[in-house]
Each structure stands twice: as C-alpha cells, then as structure tokens.
Design a protein around this nucleic acid. Structure first.
Length: 519
RNA sequence: GGCCCCAUCGUCUAGCGGCCUAGGAUGUCACCCUUUCAAGGUGAAGACACGGGUUCGAACCCCGUUGGGGCUACCA
C-alpha cells in the first residue's frame, strides 16, 4: 500500500507499530558540527524519544581525504551540549558496534562483491582522466554529464585480464536502464524518477572504502534503523538508494527528507564557506561551537531549531524539549526550505534566560565571567544574577553590563558621561556633593534607605529621577549602560560607592577648571 | 543546461474545501511604564506569487507560468 493512500493518522500508527523505532544521526567528522546538522540530529532524537525508541550516532568517516582526527570529539561535544544523548554509538557502543564506518570495511567489501557476483554491480577500471574526458565530451555536446557505463559492458574475460594486470577498479551499481523508480517519502509522498536519467554510481572506491551510498544502506539495515531522517540534499540520490535496497532485497526503513536551512536572506543554504550576515553586516555563525561560545543556552538553541520546519501544534513557540518530545511527529514537518530566523533566536535565548532558576543562571554566568578573565566572588554573583536576568539576550552580554562588579580596579567614567540630559557641569557637581553627604550619613545602606534619602533630593535640586540617578549610576558603575543604581550600590557597599562618587566629583572639578583655564 | 523539490506578512509559521474580513510569533514603528539598558503593557503597518480550471463555494484540489531551493564526485 502506498503511503499516500493512508491518512496521516494511519501513517503515524504505521510508523510506530511496524517495528521498534530506531533513528540515527550519521555525520561525517570533518570539523565542528554544522547548525543544520544539529537540527537533523535533533529531529531524529526527538522522534526516537517520542516513540520510546533508540537514537543512534554513527560516524561516516569513509572519506580518507577529509579525515580530521579532532572532529569526532568536537562533534560529540556539540551533541552533548545540546542534550542529545545517543543510546548507541561511539563511547557508548551497543549491539551493532562498531559505529564508526572505517571500522566496518570488510563488511562493505563483502557485500559489494556479492552485488558483483549477482550481476547487480560491476567493476569499473576507468581512470579518473577518462572520466573527465567523457564528461567534457558530453557537456560539449550539450548532454548531461556522467559516466558512459563503458565497463558495464566488459566481458568476464576482459575483466579478468585487467584484474590480472593489477589495474585499479571501483565497483559501480548497475542502475536499471529503463523504467521508473518510485520512491516514498514520509514528508513529500511519492516521487517518480526516470531510470534513464540516473547514473551508475560508485559503491566501492578504489581504496577499498565504500561511498556513502553503499555504506549507509548496509549500516541502516544492519543497525535495524526504522526511520531515516536526513537532509533534502540526499533527495536526488534517493532513487539510487532505493534501488540498492531493492538489490539486496531488504525491508526498507521509512524515509523523511528534512528541509534545508537557508541563509537568513533566503539565498542559498547556510554554509561556512559563504557565511551569512545579519542586517548590521555581522557574520552569523554556522557552527554549533560558535553558539556555544556566544552565550546561547542549549535549551534555547533546541527550542529554536525545533521551531524551524516543525510546529508545536498550538500557538506556543516557547517550549522545553520534554514538551516537544510529547508532541513530535513527522506529519507536522513542513517540506519547504526555510531561512534561518536569527532574530528569533535572540529573542528565544532571552526568554530561556529569564526562565532559568536564579542559582542556575548564576552558575552559568560564573562561567561567562571567568571565561572573560574575571575573578568571581560567590557573594557578589548571587546578588548580581537577579539584576541581569531581565537584561540579557545572551549570557555573554553580562560581561559588558556587569563585569565591573568583578574588576579590582575601577575606571572612572569620562566627565562628560556624568552630565545628564539638560544638565550642566555645575548642577552635576552639586548633585554629586549633596548625594555624597546624604549617602555617607546612612547607617543602613539598603536599597530602601538609599531611596529614602535620594528621592527627596531630586525635588530639592529640581532634577528628575532620571537625571539625578543617572549621574550617580554613571559615577558608580563607570558605564552609561549598567545595572540599576540602588541595587548596584547595595552590592558595592557604602564605602566603595561613596569613594566612587567622590572620584567622579574630583574628575568633574578638574575638567571644569581645565575648561575655565582654556577659555 | 539536465533531474528533482518547494511556494501564506521582511522572517519563522497556523491553515488540510465553507469557521479566513487569513490567526500567532519575531522583527519594525508608535504610545504607556520607567533610574540608564532591558523586561513588561497597549496599539499600528505587514502575506495567500501569477494565470487558468474543478466546485454552489478555493489560501486549501488539478494544470500551466513565474520565482526560490537542492543535486549534478572514487565528498558526505
């Protein structure tokens, strides 16, 4: 029965009832994890968790030319950061180990040979030079490029001769020459490919390593993968894969090709080669590690990625992964590619920061401050975290807003920053003087008592709250943008606060004298 | 070029033939609150790509056009 003839509800039942749900994420370790890769992994993980199945991590390292020994570690680090724990795979192992393809070579070679023996694949001795020539000739004639299947027609004797001479060969799949391959995709339904537009793709390279095409089919079968959810980039080779499954005669998994993440401007897919830029011209990171370092919460990242191409079901956009697991399914996946909505990530990250329990936020902020080279005192951190919670879009913003709490030496603000809107130097000077007197006299330096003496001062000096408190806040923090005044002084303490105010007074006096001298 | 996929506000999306005068979110703008910055509150502008069908009725189904995207390796 065709998937298309089922209603979506029947399809869900089929999905889950057919066999135990086992999904996999199968990256090739060529560097840090791409943000699109994380999303693919996330969808696979969510689906497996929803159905109480297994999520497998498999490493597709069959390209020796792109081997990067540090990549695997980096990759696992990114997945773990995002909370995507795998049930089977590197470091965990499991019943189908090894989960690294370079350690499964013998199997691929055997199966490739089996296909050759069965007449479903053939050895190809063509050199890369000849392949190139064939391609050039075809393009020159305006034909689609591709291999001309020369070796498909070699006689057994000819093959034997070349092998005897020790000629290198690859194994190519014998794609049917006529007819159609009708593939089923859980998201797109049925697609018909004409076989005469297809290629005899390489299954086993001349170095004895399999290509993706061969390796993934073998492994998905061996590892009993029930659902293959991968990026749409694979869709064009889907008919090939379909035919390989048919050639082996195995039961196929259900396939779901996930839409690709496009640049925020919608032009082309997200790539590190051509890094996208936001409206200010800043580069938008493509690698998960940049987000890890950039002050983003994994909770926010997961939430954000889950919202692209999939929908929670009601109008909520802010949710936890536990909630997403309850609802995740294939039917609500949107087949259309989508631009990467960066501004939404900023917003969601802020929302998740605000949702964090205070001591959890403090813990994460400690990390951020320490990474910035600051020495964090617990007592201060505990008091500063609540001041930051509503002000952060990214954790790393904390350094600019509140880093001064953890710096030993204080850099006073330039005098011109002290003077607030519609004020002059003399008024500012007076405001500082009166405030110092009032604050120094306090025996209790709490938020409330500060307010009790400073608020009446505004009327006396004919200043607005914004003006008076602005002068003091800049004086005490050294910054124009900072945590609020009373809370800040409370953390700093009376002695330090007053000292800083006096410092401001001095610098202001100096600058007034200087300008008098100059004129 | 060839093959394939896709198409609702700038962007992410809801919508599965009548609940649509098209809903939400984000972003933008305005106002309120306010001790800077935020957060919060209120409001505004903003979309069914186009053309044909089918139907009593179409954002929704069909065809075409246009536009966008993916692929086009002994990479995955």
């Amino acid at each position: 029965m065709s998937i298309l003839s089922l209603t979506s509800e029947e399809r869900i039942v089929t999905d889950s009832a057919a066999r135990p749900v086992r999904t996999r994420f199968a990256p090739s370790p060529t560097g840090s994890l791409h943000i699109g890769g994380l999303r693919t992994a996330l969808f696979n993980w969510l689906f497996a968790r929803h159905h109480g199945g297994q999520f497998i991590l498999r490493i597709e390292d069959t390209d020796q030319n792109r081997f990067d020994p540090t990549a695997l570690t980096t990759l696992m680090e990114a997945l773990r950061w995002a909370g995507l724990q795998w049930d089977e795979g590197p470091e965990i192992n499991g019943p189908f180990a090894p989960y690294v393809q370079s350690e499964r070579l013998a199997g691929y070679q055997q199966q490739a040979q089996w296909l050759v023996d069965e007449g479903k694949a053939y050895k190809c001795f063509c050199s890369s030079e000849r392949l190139k020539q064939v391609n050039e000739a075809k393009t020159a004639k305006g034909e689609p490029s591709g291999y001309d299947r020369f070796c498909r027609h070699l006689t057994p004797v000819e093959v034997a001769e070349r092998e005897a001479q020790g000629q290198k060969y690859v194994i190519r799949f014998k794609m049917p020459l006529e007819g159609q391959t009708v593939v089923q995709d859980a998201i797109r339904g049925e697609t018909v490919f004409e076989n005469n537009t297809q290629q005899d793709m390489v299954l086993l390279k001349s170095d004895g390593f399999p290509t993706y095409h061969l390796a993934h089919v073998l492994d998905d079968h061996a590892m009993q993968i029930s659902h293959v959810m991968r990026a749409v980039e694979w869709f064009p080779s889907f008919p090939l894969h379909w035919q390989i499954w048919e050639a082996f005669g195995w039961e196929k998994p259900i396939f779901a090709h996930l839409p690709v993440l496009l640049n925020p401007n919608g032009k082309g897919k997200m790539s590190k080669r051509n890094p996208p830029k936001d409206k200010f011209g800043n580069i938008i990171p493509v690698m998960v590690h940049d987000y890890m370092r950039g002050g983003y919460l994994p909770e926010a990242m997961d939430n954000f990625l889950t919202n692209i191409g999939w929908n929670f079901g009601d109008e909520r956009e802010f949710f936890s992964m536990a909630e997403a697991i309850e609802r995740f399914d294939l039917t609500r996946i949107n087949p259309a590619n989508s631009a990467f909505p960066v501004e939404k990530l900023e917003w969601l990250n802020g929302e998740h920061i605000r949702a964090l329990p205070m001591d959890e936020l403090a813990t994460r902020l400690r990390d951020v401050f320490e990474t910035a080279g600051l020495t964090v005192r617990d007592e201060v951190l505990r008091q500063v975290a609540p001041l930051l919670q509503i002000r952060l879009k990214r954790l790393t913003d904390a350094v600019a807003i509140a880093g001064f709490f953890f710096r030993d030496e204080f850099t006073p603000p330039p005098p011109e920053h002290l003077i607030q809107k519609k004020m002059d130097a003399a008024q500012t000077q007076q405001a500082l003087e009166r405030s110092i007197a009032a604050l120094a006299a306090l025996t209790d330096f709490s938020h409330a008592s500060q307010q009790a003496v400073l608020e009446p001062l505004t009327t006396e000096l004919s200043l607005s709250n914004g003006q008076l408190f602005g002068v003091l806040r800049v004086a005490v923090t050294g910054q124009q943008v900072s945590t609020p005044l009373f809370e800040t002084m409370e953390v700093l303490g009376q002695a330090e606060s007053v000292a800083r105010l006096e410092l401001a007074q001095e610098s202001l006096r100096d600058s007034i004298e200087k300008s008098v001298t100059n004129s």
